Simulated assay, not measured.
Amino acid sequence: MKIIINNSSMQPLYEQITDQIKRAVMQGTLKEGDNLPSVRTLAKELRISALTVKKSYDNLEQEGFIVTVHGKGSFIAYTSKEFILEGKKKEIEIDMEAAIRKGRSCGMKDEELTELFYLILED
């Protein structure tokens, strides 16, 4: 498993790790039952704090992406891609609602917001 950390990113390191593992699960690179590196091993490979990796693994476990078995390690859990995709759609919906509220707060009309949306889609 290849994880790349961008130290100049505004995104916290634990979120970068979490997002890359989720992406690997969605793309099928990581499959149910695959073993993840130990917290210490991954921290050493990435040259970051073990607490940062632990926070990422804890978040992944809370979201149902991994299962940790004490003394054995962390493994990719069974997750349906539809369930994961639904979660992503919900995140996008929240972001779009925030963008609409922001546009309306500065006086944009629905037609202007719609036109902007389609302009962005074309890119």
Rank of each mutant, 00 (worst) to 15 (best):
D34E: 02
E86V: 01
L85P: 00
M108V: 03
K2V: 11
I120Q: 11
K22S: 15
A50E: 06
I120R: 12
L51E: 10
R47S: 15
E112H: 03
I5F: 09
R101K: 11
K44V: 08
K54G: 12
M96E: 02
A50T: 06
E63W: 12
V69W: 08
V39G: 07
R101A: 06
L121S: 08
S9D: 15
G107P: 07
L51D: 05
S56W: 08
Y118E: 06
P37E: 03
L85K: 10
I76H: 01
E15T: 06
D110Q: 12
S56T: 09
E112R: 10
I3Q: 09
V69H: 13
T79W: 00
A43N: 04
I21F: 08
K44T: 10
H70Y: 15
F83L: 05
V53F: 01
E82R: 14
L42T: 03
K90T: 01
G87T: 02
K90I: 01
A24Y: 04
L30K: 05
A50K: 08
V39I: 12
K81E: 07
I5E: 09
K88C: 01
V69R: 15
V67S: 14
E93W: 01
R47Q: 14
L116Q: 07
M10K: 15
L51G: 11
I3L: 09
K109R: 14
T68L: 14
R23G: 15
G87F: 05
L119T: 05
T79M: 07
